[in-house]
Simulated assay, not measured.
Amino acid sequence: MTAVAVAAGRAVETTRPDRLMADPFAAALVDGAQSSLDLPVAWPAEPQDAPPLQHPLLLASTYIGMRTRFIDDILSSGDPTGQTVILGAGLDTRAYRLPWQDGARLLELDLGGVLGFKAGVMAGLAAEPGCELVSVPADLSLPWGGPLRAAGFDPDQATTWVIEGLLPYLDSDAQLQTLTEVVALSAPGSRAVIERAVALPRTDDFEAQLREFSDRTGLPMTELLARTDPPDPARVLEEAGWRCTRHTVQELCSRYGRRISLNPDAGDPGAGPSGTAGSPDEQRGGFVQAWL
């Protein structure tokens, strides 16, 4: 369902008059999922008048639009690598909508059911990828290097790694395991773009909030606490010899002239929903771009 919601965000962005990117397949993927959720797939003429339950989804689509464009720009710039790996690909359609150099290979890792659903929808649309596309079924909370190698990944070849919308769904140990695996499988000339997880605090007050949340939802607090103190991707990669730059969500808002707000009279780009600078970074962890 998370993958469908992200596809809906791309569909909404595609319909905006000031769109940052276009995904002609996103709405069909949402429709094919037949979700019971009321997911918007178009930007309303008056966003503030949309049903209240859609407000957070429209705000999320604004973030998803910036995130998608940022990563698209990285993949379309610099020195391309012969192979690209998207970890937690979900319903990503970059294989079909981005230009790829001759001989490019894209390996997508996610749960088999998600990848199979996407392949079925794209086949129904008669969509053809612009590169060699390899789907690799894998549970990314477990070691995934073996399945990736078995699918033809070449660890001696430079790789572009895309880790988008994945780390927040892994506990801290699994996040570190993923980053360590990327380091181990990367040849010189590799590069990466990583969406960071928010570092949840581990304080008495926060643990009390988690206990209350656990009581209300039934989600064990141990699962929530496992997401505190996540590793910093930039630090992990820099210690392995990578060169990294960090990018905040506020920076993306300024770069693309966007506000994460439904209020057209909100403050400067980079301000959060309430118009206070810095709010997006209180909700999102920003991005790391890295080169080996």
Rank of each mutant, 00 (worst) to 15 (best):
L98Q: 06
L98D: 07
L98W: 08
P99S: 12
P99E: 13
P99R: 14
W100G: 09
W100Q: 07
Q101T: 14
Q101F: 02
Q101R: 14
D102E: 14
A104M: 02
R105W: 01
E108N: 12
E108W: 11
E108R: 12
E108Q: 14
L109S: 13
G113S: 13
G113C: 00
G113L: 02
V114F: 08
L115C: 06
L115Q: 05
G116L: 01
G116V: 01
K118F: 09
G120N: 11
G120K: 09
G120C: 07
V121K: 02
V121H: 08
M122N: 11
A123L: 09
L125C: 05
L125M: 14
L125E: 11
L125D: 00
L125F: 07
A126D: 15
A126G: 06
A127C: 09
A127V: 06
A127D: 10
E128Y: 00
E128T: 15
P129I: 03
P129C: 09
L133F: 03
V136R: 04
V136K: 00
V136F: 03
V136D: 10
V136L: 10
P137T: 01
A138V: 11
L140A: 10
S141P: 01
S141Q: 12
S141T: 15
L142P: 00
L142C: 13
L142T: 13
L142Q: 15
W144K: 07
G145D: 15
G145I: 00
G146E: 15
L148F: 07
L148T: 08
A150G: 00
A150S: 14
A150E: 15
A151H: 04
G152T: 04
G152K: 10
G152R: 12
